[in-house]
Amino acid sequence: MSNRRPEVAAPWSSAGLLPNATAILRPGDTAPVLLQVRDVTQRYGAARALDGLSLAVRRGETLGLLGPNGAGKTTLMHLMAGVLAPTGGTVLLDGRGSPSSPATRRRIGIAPQDLALYTELTAEENLRFFARLYGLRGRALSLAVERALALAELTARRHHRVHTFSGGMQRRLNLACAVVHGPDLVLLDEPTVGVDPQSRGHVFDSLERLKALGHTLVYSTHYMEEAERLCDRIAVIDHGRLLACGTLHELVRRHGGGHRVRARLTRHPDDVSSGTIVGDEQEWVLPDAAQATELALKLGSSASSLAVRPPDLETVFFTLTGRSLRD
């Protein structure tokens, strides 16, 4: 895929690429709500995959669903896509349509967590088939397929059967199939899962192009770096509940805890309180960056190792759940 840049440049350099793509909005509190999830519960027998979860997706934003495996992300995606009907609560698009009605589903696209492709068909045949299901015909169909191929950087491989594709290429096609009909809302369920780091970069490129086009994206992941990089707002989910929702900055400020200073000391400085012992190191938690820096400077001359860690999503998650995101 060394030739991918030129292949993409042409179709994506002009504006208004996907049929229904909205103008690029800077999502903020002012953007209207596109999808409203209100108090949804999903039971599987006695177990609850979702437990009274409420959430709003604003038009034009990228909302991340961050949570460990089994948190309920996929279940929530399926409710949003109308593939599942919730045991309780409502999901509404534009305040009116439920995704259980075909007319509403037409405006939504989903890239399932598990690849959902016909591997004996070519990339183009897959795209054409799914676009047809959404009623696209003739020139509009061909155009939509071209755009989706370009988005996934698969134009050169369009006539190849999917089973000959690498994992990363299949992931990209999985994504392209979700957007080929130009949906208002795109649901991406762990689109980078099970892909090697290099191919993940490629998939991520496609995601960023999609975002740049102004699509409203809901993006689930259990990789916090991805959530930090791509999402305007992040919803932290665990055990089927929404624990917190906001911009990265807001989450870190509210739930990130303090700045952590860790050091392995050769000698304890006199004017420093003793921290918590963690292994053969000591740790101090300080409310802001200034105080952390001050402490680090004091420790500097008497430490064999020293690290300052500002709060991040990982610490946000730990504060909210008492667990680490990656177990």
Binding site: H78, A81, G82, V83, P102, A103, R105, R106, I108, G109, I110, P112, D114, L115, A116, L117, Y118, T119, F130, L133, Y134, G135, C177
Partner: peptide
């Protein structure tokens, strides 16, 4: 098993 069933169900068809 291929998962395409999910796409069919998410499409605007009954």
């Amino acid at each position: 098993t291929r998962g395409t069933d999910l796409r069919l169900r998410s499409a605007p068809i009954s």
